[in-house]
Computed example of a mutant assay.
Amino acid sequence: MDAYAQLLLLDNESVEFALQTEDVLGAVREAFVLHSRRAGRVFPVVREKLHTGGVFGIKAGDVADQNLLGFKAAGFWPSNRQAGSEPHQATILLINPATGRPQVVLDGNAITTARTGAAGALGLKAFARPDSERLCLFGTGVQAHIQLTYALSTLPDLHDVHYVSYSGEAEPDFEAQFRDRCTIRVAKDRNDAVARSDVIITATPGGQPLFDSAAIQPGTHLTCVGADTAGKRELPPNVLEHARVFVDDMQQAQTIGECQWVNGIKCTEIGDVLEGKVAFERNRDDVTVFDMTGLALQDLTVARLVYQSAISSGKGRTVAWPW
C-alpha cells in the first residue's frame, strides 16, 4: 500500500514506551535551540475558553530543513475530574509538509507531560543554584509530579520538599511516590515554605497568586508552569520586576504567561542561553524566573522521537487513509 494511504495511530501506551528521560531532554533542548536559531517556526497560538467550561488550544509549527510539520490540539477540562479522568487532554498530528498528508496521530497527554517536565529541568540546570537543597511545590497533579521528578534528578543536593495541595491538606499517595528520594511533607504555611526554599515550582491551574512576594528570598529560582492562558497567573505582583526573567518564547510569555502582567518586562529566551547567544552567570543573590508557556516545537521534536521509535519497534496501529 502507498505510504501516503496509511496513517499510524499511537495510543498512550505506545507513546510512553518511547519517552526515555535523556531522549526527551535532548529533544526539548533541540526545540529551544531551533527556536533560538529561528530554524523552527512557532505559529500563533490558539487558546480559547469553551461554553463547556474547558479551555481549548492549538500549538503548531514546523522545521523546514527537517521536513517536520504538525500541531497539538490540547486544553484543560476541569469537569473531567468528576468522572475520575484527567482534565488535561492533548492530541498531536504530524503531517508530511510536501503533500499535506497526515503521517501519525499520537496521544499527546504523555508527550505534553514529559516535554514540560524536561523544559523545567533544563531551566533548573541553566538558572537555579546548583547546590539548591530545598524546594516548595505548588500543586500535586500530573504536572507537579513530573516537575518534581525531574527536579530531583537535576539538582543533586535537593533533599527537602514542602508542597501545597489544592485542599491544603496532606496527600499521602502523592508523598509516597517521592518518599524514597527526599523528605516530603505538606506546607503548614505557604509563605514560610517559600521563604525557606531555594527553588519554587508552581504547577497549578493558574487561578490566582499563590503566595506573597515578600516571602521570596535572595537566590531563589522559580519555575512557573500554570500560566498558559490570558488572565491566568500564579506569581504575585512585584516578583518579575525584581528578577532575572527567562522564557521559552517572548511573545507567548507576554500574551499568555506570567509576563502578561508586566508591560515591557525584560526577558531572555532560554534557547538563546542554551545556544550561547546570551551569556548567563548567576550571582548568589539573584532571583530567577523561568516562565514556561510551552512551545509547539517541543511537541514536534518529542513527537518525532516517539514516531521514529514506533517505526523501529513496530508499535502502534496502521489504518488505511487513502487519498
Rank of each mutant, 00 (worst) to 15 (best):
D2L: 13
Y4C: 09
L8M: 07
L9Q: 10
E13Y: 07
F17P: 00
A27Q: 05
V28T: 02
S36I: 01
R38I: 00
P44H: 02
V46I: 14
K49L: 05
T52E: 12
I58K: 02
L68D: 03
F71C: 09
G75S: 13
G75C: 11
F76E: 08
N80P: 03
Q82L: 11
E86P: 01
E86H: 11
L93H: 06
N96W: 04
A98Y: 12
T99M: 06
R101F: 10
P102Q: 06
Q103E: 14
A110T: 01
I111E: 06
T112D: 04
T113V: 15
G123T: 01
L124D: 06
R129W: 01
E133A: 15
E133Q: 15
L135F: 00
L137A: 09
G141L: 03
Q143N: 05
A144E: 02
I146T: 13
T149F: 11
S153K: 15
H162P: 00
Y166L: 13
S167M: 04
G168K: 06
E171S: 11
R179A: 13
K188I: 11
R190W: 06
D192Y: 05
V194L: 05
S197F: 03
V199R: 03
F211C: 10
P218R: 12
L222K: 00
L222Y: 01
C224G: 08
V225L: 15
R233S: 05
E241T: 10
R244V: 08
V247P: 05
Q251N: 14
A253K: 03
T255C: 12
D272P: 02
K277I: 06
V278T: 12
A279I: 08
R282M: 07
N283M: 09
V289P: 00
G294F: 01
L295G: 03
D299P: 05
V306W: 04
I311H: 07
S312H: 11
G314P: 01
